[in-house]
Design a binder for these strands. Sequence first.
DNA 1: ATGCTCACTTGACACGGTGTCAATTGATGT
DNA 2: ACATCAATTGACACCGTGTCAAGTGAGCAT
Lengths: 195, 195
Amino acid sequence: MSSDERDTRTRILEATWRLLEAHPGQEVKMAEIARAAGISRQAVYLHFASRTELLIATTRYVDEVKGLDARLARLGEATTGVEMLEACVEVWGNYIPEIYAIARALMRAKETDEAAAAAWNGTMGCLRDVCREVIDTLDREDRLAADWSPDEAVDLFFTLISIPNWEQLTIEHGWSTVKYVEHMKLLLRRAFVAG
Amino acid sequence: MSSDERDTRTRILEATWRLLEAHPGQEVKMAEIARAAGISRQAVYLHFASRTELLIATTRYVDEVKGLDARLARLGEATTGVEMLEACVEVWGNYIPEIYAIARALMRAKETDEAAAAAWNGTMGCLRDVCREVIDTLDREDRLAADWSPDEAVDLFFTLISIPNWEQLTIEHGWSTVKYVEHMKLLLRRAFVAG
DNA sequence: ATGCTCACTTGACACGGTGTCAATTGATGT
DNA sequence: ACATCAATTGACACCGTGTCAAGTGAGCAT
């Protein structure tokens, strides 16, 4: 019963994810998701009140499966600010391609839907906290470039590693993930590290 | 007759623009535009075949009224690459807020509409050409940072001054236009100018 | 003044996607 | 034999885009 429900619910989440990955950047319709999950369109609404809610739940599901938290834990191993910065770019830069499809769907939803925006900002808040840590560490080491206050540096750092920028460089301009990571590291060092 | 038609057509374009500015980031409906222009909804379709076409025409109209070309001509006055780079940021950074509403509408349309994407890429191609000029000039002066090939530098430059980045820094994080321009100049110098 | 043209109006309609509702089926556990 | 509950079927309302057809009315022709 409860496990049955979990099963169907999970099947919907997986179907959503699969479809998003299969048609990147396309609008995935509720009817398609239902078909892919092997249930009726209406049954989806028994588990998720709306399209937005389904997208948000899928985001959480993917984040959980992919384990961003665990990956970000690696940053703790870094001893210097520069190492943290590079580890951050590496983890995040390798994570984006894995979650890009659902992230893009949620980004689009957030433009019109308040709940989607809140969910998105929540997820992104974690990343922002990491940016803050990196910048604070650099600042404590007196290696933060004199051009920025810590707050400004965080805003800028967070903006530079945003998904739209990744999208532009990799998808539009054809950069590989490796190239993206290496060049982003270079850019961030030049931008934020003194000397 | 011909002037009458121009009048109505222009009234539609202006109504579209006005509504986009008034409700930034909202979906503006054909019916609202018609009402704002003082005509029937169907009459809009006598002048523009579709919503996308109207958005594209509005973009062109705004670009023409605002005169980006003339502003970019100022770059010719710059003598060094660094001056060009700074002038570029200044012109573009002051231009974005004036066209942000329509730009955002077109950016959104381009996600689903092929024609909108083409129009957008056309407009952005001009900006990219300017980026290329700046980088080439720096390169010719041997002042392009050794970390990048000219092609890579152009990709990155173009990405850094993109509208989503402007949006994030000014709208989300509250940076003023002046702050945006000054800090973007600093960032670009640190990123691309050697020494 | 009669009649044409042409922009525009009115009102209806098809389509596609979301979300809702009500009645029904069918498997499960008791 | 019965209740429960997930899921099904089929219908429907709503909204926004785009289309179609018939009608209005002002300006301009000769």
